[in-house]
Amino acid sequence: MAEKRDYYEVLEIPRTATVEEIKKAYRKKALQYHPDRNPGDKKAEEKFKEAAEAYEILSDTDKRARYDRFGHAGVNGTGGNGFGGGMSMDDIFSQFGDIFGGHFGSFGGFGNFSGFGSSRSRQRTNKGSDLRVKVKVSLKEILTGVEKKIKVKKYVACSHCHGNGSENGDSVSTCTTCNGSGVVTRIANTIFGQMQTTSTCPTCNGEGKIITKKCAYCNGEGIVREEEIISIKIPAGVTAGMQLTVSGQGNAARRGGINGDLLVVIEEEEDPNLIRSGNDVIYNLFISFPTAALGGTVEIPTIDGVAKIKIEPGTQPGNVLRLRNKGLPSLNGYGTGDQLVNVNVYVPETLSESEKKALSQMEKSSNFTPSNSAKRNVFDKFKKMFN
């Protein structure tokens, strides 16, 4: 699958573009690649869908913010096609047709171009509501990415009427008021001449059809509430609070239409040993005074196992050791963080008489009195922490 282009690049707008500028840019692209203008041109159709997908994300404040922060992964957690790629042309027309005014094809100077405004109806397409769930992930799962299966209570299409709300799924007739178009057009004579207005059909509420006998299982709604198991692919490198979008896995729409989306909010499980700091992880290592003075080898936990590190003789409390590339990956694949090992020297709280005597003897040695340079190093580290 080809890599998706940047949405701002698709619409040829700067990242600072306003909502009106985004709408204007999309309108221009939709005009350019509209299928009525490019019959049989698959490349133009893909560009038309690509522009619709870009507009769907950038025109939504919340989705745009996630996209600006996390890129495509922030708005498409499953890695599949987004809005434009996963929906039909009619879905796009129904969802975004209103930004052109009237019928989708009514493009001002192109009202009669190749059937614009007449070849496609404005039947109202119901849209299911979005669902939001929280999913907990561990540092190890963030390291590699993970697929989670979760139970979600949501509205799904009624199996008895196949989602159209009628008994046995066939008690439906075409609305006679709008002849199935979902809209009614009126022409009025004014001092400026004849004026044409188009509005939603009051009889069928824009659906273009009438249910003659309601389904007894869903009372004509076409949806029922059930529990469903959904598989969610969480990419490596996610952060707490990030929101992924699983297209079409939200609530089903009444009497057919477009399913809502499932919004997955990432929660990070607290690790018993490691602290996350961006893409780095921090481990607080406690060693004994003899180990700090004499040196040695210690074993420490990492995200995906354990590692052995060498303690140099004379290691001071507060020293930080760095394990390269032992942290977490960047969400967009720009490198991997490190594991920082913060060295602490443990001072015993109780001592035996022999231990006290041995320490008293050592204290008399000049080696146990810090030099001026050692004092300065500690001072500089302390100062840096608060600057």
Score class of each variant (00 low, 15 high):
M1N: 08
Y7K: 06
I13R: 07
R15A: 12
V19L: 13
I22V: 14
L31Q: 09
Q32H: 03
Q32A: 11
Q32G: 00
R37E: 10
K42V: 06
K43H: 06
R64N: 05
R66I: 00
Y67T: 03
Y67C: 02
D68R: 01
G74W: 01
N76A: 04
F83V: 00
F83Y: 15
M87K: 15
F93Y: 15
S94C: 11
H103Q: 13
G108V: 05
F110A: 13
S119F: 09
K127A: 08
S129T: 15
L131A: 10
V135A: 07
S138L: 06
L143I: 01
T144W: 13
G145T: 02
V152A: 01
Y155D: 06
H160A: 08
D170I: 11
V172S: 01
T174L: 14
T176W: 10
T176D: 04
C178A: 07
N179M: 06
G180R: 01
T185V: 13
A188E: 12
I191S: 14
Q194D: 08
M195P: 00
P202V: 09
C204K: 11
T212E: 05
K214G: 04
N219D: 15
G220V: 10
I223L: 02
V224K: 09
V224Q: 06
R225M: 11
R225N: 05
I232A: 03
T245E: 02
V246Y: 08
G248I: 01
G248E: 14
I258A: 11
G260V: 02
L263Y: 09
V264P: 03
V264I: 09
I266A: 04
Y283V: 02
F286M: 12
F286N: 11
S288V: 03
P290D: 10
T297M: 15
I300G: 15
I300R: 11
P301C: 12
I303W: 08
D304G: 09
I309H: 10
N332P: 00
N344H: 14
L351P: 06
S354Y: 04
S354A: 09
E355G: 03
K356L: 12
L359G: 00
L359R: 07
Q361A: 13
Q361Y: 08
M362W: 08
E363P: 00
N372Y: 06
A374W: 04
V378G: 05
V378E: 13
D380I: 07
D380E: 15
M385G: 09
N387M: 12
